[in-house]
């Protein structure tokens, strides 16, 4: 049984947020990446899975349980954590508070356990430890991305969905973020990764899907996708048919 399985999911109304029958699966322990141009529907796919948008039809199963139409709240409680595009750090809360709130889906957790998890999070991202008590808005984009991922991990997710973690980051930071993603998987968390930087994404992924205008057009392991004409086009941001 796949950890996550989408079958014929449609959602959205306008062309930018429309999904026209998406079927995909993520197996336990994989890193799966979802590629595609701006506006292809990658973000919508994640938003639909995490319950921010309601699908119009189709089924979404997480650990065998139907979650299509459930609230975002209920879905994250099942262990499916979504780190959305743009990082969305609470600007008025400190880094430590931001990360701690990541555990909100776990019900009552003893303080000692939270502290252990917090320490572990700072262990993965030692660079943000020195900002632990700074308000979220004072951090740079890269640091905020690390806080966002750390916050997502505090949910102890079985599946972590990351939306464009490299967005607006300097190349060297991007490499660091991707190393961390690989590391997170090595610790046992499955990852569904949405990226525009296809090359980086495919360098750590087990499999990938390519979306175009709300439809999946190819699926396969990195080597196959890198060889694929459509992917090469999509990864430079869409195609223009030859005249």
């Amino acid at each position: 049984m796949a950890l996550l399985e989408l079958d014929g999911v449609t959602a959205g109304y306008t062309a930018v947020d429309a999904l026209n029958g998406i079927s995909l699966r993520v197996e336990d322990g994989e890193i799966v990446t979802l590629l595609g141009a701006n506006g292809a529907g990658k973000t919508t796919t994640l938003r639909t899975i995490s319950g921010l948008m309601k699908p119009r039809s189709g089924s979404i199963r997480f650990m065998g349980q139907e979650i299509a139409g459930a609230s975002a709240n209920a879905i994250v409680r099942l262990g499916l954590s979504h780190v959305p595009e743009g990082r969305r750090i609470f600007p008025g809360l400190t880094v430590r508070e931001n990360i701690l709130l990541g555990s909100s889906n776990r019900g009552r957790v003893p303080r000692a356990e939270l502290d252990r998890d917090l320490e572990a999070a700072f262990g993965i991202f030692p660079d943000i430890l020195k900002f632990a008590d700074s308000p979220g808005w004072t951090l740079s984009g890269g640091q905020q991305q690390m806080v966002a991922v750390a916050r997502g991990l505090m949910a102890r997710p079985k599946l972590l969905m990351l939306d464009e973690p490299s967005l607006g980051l300097a190349p060297i930071i991007v490499q660091q973020v991707f190393r961390t993603i690989a590391d997170i998987r090595a610790r046992g968390t499955t990852v569904l990764l949405v990226e525009q930087n296809a090359h980086m994404a495919l360098s750590i992924a087990d499999r990938g899907y390519v979306l175009e205008t709300g439809r999946l057009i190819v699926e396969g392991p990195p080597a196959t996708l890198l060889d694929n004409e459509e992917v090469r086009a999509a990864y430079l941001g869409g195609r223009v048919t030859a005249e």
């Binding site: 975002a72 709240n73 409680r77 959305p84 990541g102």
Partner: peptide, 24 residues
Amino acid sequence: TMLGKKLQATSQDKEMASLLGIPV
């Protein structure tokens, strides 16, 4: 308090709060 923090988080970004499992 954590509840206080959750209230603050909700007032700063409701959608993100719901993604973290905070009952908005």
